[in-house]
Design a protein around this nucleic acid. Structure first.
Lengths: 131, 131
DNA sequence: TATATACTTCAACTATCATTGAAGTATATT
DNA sequence: AATATACTTCAATGATAGTTGAAGTATATA
């Protein structure tokens, strides 16, 4: 028996991760880091945005624990960013758990007209006009 | 050979999905729908928020294609929401593809001091102070 | 026909957050 | 010591989007 009323403890953490990654520019930055483009300057020039904005987004990713930073050992002015693999694994686990199709339950009969004993499979679906 | 410069076509779509789901209240609503709580009233009472706000979030989820709506066949006042399983499958595929750890590449040597021939495995990592 | 229910839409407010330009920090080079 | 480079921090702006309360729509019941 599932306890649905209590919000999952992971839900808030997942929402935080999603929020950080939901920003298109930031998602693209994360993508570039995964692909091996990891210094501030290249990220900025590749995206066509000022360096300080890249810093801003990188900081958000770092605060979320998704990326790490390292300074160049020979020239400490250069900073390289990399994906935190543990965080990525945790993220994947959280995503896979939350969006697991197996979790989908048939509608609970706690709302709707009382005399409606429904057969879920017989209800016609319509996606709505989406206006 | 990977073409990294071109932003993936899926990236924008993924960002849209993430943005819709990144809102904690909305994520919780989506969770409740997966668990079988699918009418507006229950969602609202369970979350302790007004019905119109639930409508607002449900509309966002519907516009993103993540949920469908259906009216009660015997009493058309009641509306039930359900997860669009095709969209969920597509979402899972997109997430799995994008956050695949296998995609992580070592740093490209197009930035940094020119004389730095680096061995990626020897660079010390530090997560930053995260302030 | 009048009232109640379930839900949606609307307009206004508010808060959050991405963006911008300038100033600041740290390191390296001349 | 002075300048340049790589990057970060700061303050201010602007846009997006969640929240609220009231009005509106559609269906059902008395």
């Amino acid at each position: 028996m599932l306890d649905v009323k209590s919000p999952p403890a992971d839900l808030e953490r997942l929402a935080r991760w999603l929020k950080v990654l939901a920003e298109p520019t930031r998602l693209y930055i994360f993508h570039l880091i995964m692909e091996g483009y990891q210094c501030n300057c290249v990220l900025g020039s590749d995206l066509g945005i000022p360096a300080n904005l890249v810093s801003y987004h990188l900081r958000a990713l770092r605060k979320a624990g998704l990326v790490d930073m390292q300074r160049d050992p020979t020239d400490a002015r250069w900073v390289y960013y990399s994906v935190n693999e543990e965080a990525l694994a945790a993220l994947n686990k959280a995503l896979g758990g939350f969006f697991d199709p197996e979790r989908i339950q048939p509608r609970r009969t706690i709302c709707g007209p009382q005399d409606t004993i429904l057969d879920v499979n017989e209800i016609e679906f319509n996606s709505g006009d989406q206006t």
